[in-house]
């Protein structure tokens, strides 16, 4: 079962990479990378069990943290890039009823 789950997670990681390469927008890429990161956490936890070495979990935890830090960092920096185009918040569409 663990092997099956590992394979599933691997497949999802490949799908995420495809999305990261295809894009089209910057945010799609960041989203894909973020998803890739969270899936890596799962993958490492699973691999730890496949190998019978549960101390891998420490790494999984660090991953979760580092992934968060880098996503926030990327957003912060991309914010700085796009600062010029920054205007008021886009108007939310009215619910047509």
């Amino acid at each position: 079962m663990i092997i099956a789950a590992t394979l599933a997670v691997l497949v999802v990681m490949i799908l995420a990479i495809i999305r990261a390469v295809v894009g089209p927008s910057l945010y799609d890429r960041i989203l894909a990378v973020n998803m890739f990161g969270t899936k890596t956490v799962l993958l490492i936890a699973l691999l730890g069990f496949v190998m019978g070495r549960p101390e891998f979990l420490d790494i999984a935890m660090v991953y979760a943290l580092i992934n968060f830090v880098s996503v926030i960092g990327v957003l912060r920096l991309s914010d700085a890039f796009n600062a010029k185009h920054n205007g008021p918040v886009a108007e939310p569409a009215k619910r047509d009823s």
Binding site: S25, Y27, I30, L31, N34, F68, V71, I72, L75, S78, D79, N82, H85, N86, G87, V89, A90
Partner: peptide
């Protein structure tokens, strides 16, 4: 993280 991402996307229209 999702919220930050979504917010950044909205702010950049």
């Amino acid at each position: 993280a999702s919220h930050a991402l979504g917010q950044a996307a909205v702010l950049n229209k």
